[in-house]
């Protein structure tokens, strides 16, 4: 019974339960739309959290990889008639190779220098997508054909919900596997002390590059899905603001907590929708909420709540 409450088993079951149960209470297509966006963002964040929360390496440019996946799918299926799955795979491989090549020099940087390097990378991607209008449609964006695979077209909110939910659950499962493995320990060791990690035989750069590539590829896959789901994409998907949004989801939910990343993605995807009621005050309130949570719940939502519950249980028992 105790092992059921390991994150890998209990948490995954809980997540599957939520994903399966949510349709019972989602009243209409609008809510499904928000839920699907939560799922896509959460998938990116689960990967990004491996990089930021576990390996301790910041990236302020991951929206770039998300957008590259999205545009790969859009261009290859729309302009070149590729099957969507092949386009999605090609995008993922392309982003994998690109991030691999870039990661070698960039991940030698530390702290604010790494933040600057990744930020620059994301902005360059965003500028290229804006400027290469012949390929991408420029700032106006481009349409994306719908997702067809194995003779079926994924259409309607229910099908998309199921697909995105499944992708999220599989991503979380694989991530949890990874964290509780020699690779995951090595990543966390790199976060704890690079010198000590190296002297236990951990090839620090190799693992940093590995986790960077994994998170970039996951972002690319989620980007491809998003492109097909939304049916239309713009370079805003690669913007600095979007990169920041992704990092904020991870940190708000709780660094080094996979379920924290999911919760953070949910909160920050739903919040702006909820804030539309505030109209002109939307940005003001959003900024204030961001500052407030980071100041008062410094560890993030999930770890803070988990700590509270643990204390409550302990004092209840005593």
């Amino acid at each position: 019974m105790a092992s059921l409450w390991q994150p890998r088993t209990g948490g995954l079951l809980a997540l599957a339960g939520v994903v399966a149960g949510l349709p019972l209470i989602l009243p209409n297509a609008f809510y499904y739309d928000v839920a699907i966006l939560v799922g896509i963002n959460a998938t990116v964040c689960v990967g990004l959290n491996l990089l930021i929360g576990y390996a301790g390496q910041i990236s302020l440019g991951h929206a770039g990889f998300f957008a590259l996946g999205a545009y790969a799918s859009a261009i290859l299926t729309g302009d070149h008639g590729w099957p969507p799955l092949a386009a999605l795979a090609a995008g993922a491989v392309g982003v994998g190779v690109l991030s691999f090549v870039l990661a070698q020099p960039i991940l030698k940087l530390k702290g604010h220098y790494l933040a600057m390097g990744t930020l620059g990378l994301g902005i360059i991607i965003s500028i290229v997508l804006n400027q290469e209008a012949g390929l991408t449609g420029g700032p106006d964006g481009m349409p994306v054909p719908s997702l067809r695979a194995l003779g079926h077209t994924v259409a309607g909110e229910h099908a998309w919900y199921a697909l995105v939910g499944l992708v999220l659950i599989v991503s979380v499962w694989l991530t949890l596997n990874l964290i509780d493995s020699p690779v995951g320990r090595a990543l966390q060791a790199v976060h704890g002390s690079e010198s000590a990690a190296a002297l236990t035989g951990v090839d620090v750069i190799r693992y940093k590059v590995l986790v960077f590539v994994v998170s970039a590829v996951l972002a690319s896959l989620a980007g491809s899905l998003f492109a097909h789901y939304a049916g239309f994409i713009t370079p805003a998907e690669a913007s600095f603001a979007r990169s920041i949004e992704l990092v904020t989801m991870v940190v708000l939910g709780g660094m080094a907590s996979t379920f924290g990343a999911v919760v953070g993605a949910a909160v920050l995807t739903i919040l702006p929708q909820a804030l539309t009621a505030f109209q002109d005050f939307k940005m003001l309130v959003f900024g204030a909420v961001l500052m407030g949570t980071m100041i008062f719940l410094r560890k993030g939502l999930v770890p803070t709540l988990a700590g509270l519950i643990r204390n409550r249980m302990r004092s209840g028992r005593a």
Partner: peptide, 17 residues
């Protein structure tokens, strides 16, 4: 982590547990 070299540090076996 000290046993890192003795454990299997490859990506895919870890990912699939």
């Amino acid at each position: 982590v000290g046993y890192h070299l003795a454990c299997d540090g490859r990506f895919l076996p870890s990912l699939l547990r």
